[in-house]
């Protein structure tokens, strides 16, 4: 099996107790058929379901509670090197980052690493306690770093928090991370598999673009309707600067957009375009010219809240 493009890497950050492990277990249940490598950097009473990872042919790799950027940076990097060099690489790498690991630094490894591509940085916060932590002289810079790094902030445990605490948490997140999408939930009930790039056999580059599969959640709270999605096909080369403007102006109901376009200046060259929250990244796609790799189809998938604009409206905005 020929390895396709770089492997997408996502980071789930937040303090212990924010719901990271619950969310990760939901992802593993929800995205059946996807082989994850899960790198765990935080240990609480709740364990990541290693069997679930293994069932899907993936791996769980553990680092203990700490900062992944300093002394542990080397071992994180060699772990990622090993995963990227495998004959049979995982479809997606998820790093569960401890409260003190800066999610941005981990995601930056994927930006620079030729075998990886940065996907999503999602930070969970406990809606009940986040404002208290943000006032704690020991922790305030740490929670700010987390928020600044996030493409998406999930206010979790909203069932346990008072209206006032939720409102304060919302205001804090909006202030610290104006470019991050903000989601609110309880029990980490987020259909995260619809937000990550899972839409190919190996990495993001191989095979046709398709909308994320409807989530298969094996429990009563079916949140398949949590997000809407739309596909827009964009075969013609685009003016990247204009595209940038259009994407930056999309309404906040669009949480995530991802896909490939070719630019007018050099139509042979593909670009990966990702909008995560309000953060836009356009980067040249490194494997466009590789023999034996099916070039990804030009187009974009949009994922948003149920009130997001329909596909026709998006197509019009994009001028396709």
């Amino acid at each position: 099996m020929a390895a396709a493009g770089p492997i997408p890497l996502s980071v789930i950050g937040g303090f212990l107790g924010a719901g990271k492990t619950t969310l990760l277990n939901r992802l593993l249940q929800g995205a059946s058929g996807i082989r994850f490598a899960v790198i765990v950097n935080d240990f609480g009473d709740l364990a990541i379901d290693g069997d679930l990872v293994a069932d899907h042919g993936g791996d769980t790799i553990t680092f203990a509670n700490g900062c992944l950027c300093c002394t542990m940076g080397d071992s994180l990097l060699s772990t990622l090197n090993d995963l990227a060099r495998r004959d049979d690489p995982p479809d997606h790498i998820v790093v569960e980052a401890s409260g003190v690991a800066d999610p941005r630094q981990i995601a930056d490894v994927a930006v620079l690493h030729p075998g990886l591509v940065r996907d999503l940085v999602l930070v969970l916060v406990d809606a009940d306690t986040i404002c208290e932590r943000a006032r704690d002289s020991r922790l305030k810079e740490t929670v700010i770093h987390q928020a600044e790094a996030a493409d998406m902030i999930v206010l979790n445990k909203c069932d346990l928090a008072s209206e006032q605490h939720i409102a304060d948490a919302r205001a804090w997140a909006a202030e610290q991370a104006p470019r991050a999408a903000l989601l609110e939930t309880a029990h980490a009930r987020i259909a995260i598999e619809r937000l990550l790039t899972l839409d190919s056999g190996h990495g993001i580059g191989n095979g046709p673009l398709r909308a994320p599969a409807v989530a298969h959640i094996g429990h009563a709270h079916d949140h398949a309707n949590q997000f809407s999605s739309a596909v827009v096909i964009l075969e013609a080369p685009l003016d990247l600067a204009a595209l940038r403007g259009v994407l930056n102006d999309l309404p906040p109901s669009i949480l995530r957009a991802k896909g490939f376009v070719s630019s007018r200046e050099d139509p042979s060259r593909l670009h990966l375009v990702q909008l995560s929250g309000r953060r836009l990244r356009i980067e040249p796609w490194p494997v466009a010219a590789r023999a034996g790799v099916v070039p990804p189809r030009r187009g974009r998938v949009f994922v948003g809240t149920p009130d997001m604009p329909p596909a026709a409206g998006l197509t019009r905005r994009l001028g396709a």
């Binding site: 212990l16 700490g66 900062c67 401890s98 003190v100 020991r138 740490t142």
Partner: peptide
């Protein structure tokens, strides 16, 4: 650092381990 932090007003530093852990 504890209050008053860095003399040149740099932001406070980094934890390499969660202080509550």
């Amino acid at each position: 650092l504890k209050w008053p932090g860095y003399f040149n007003s740099s932001a406070n530093g980094l934890w390499y381990i969660d202080p509550d852990r």
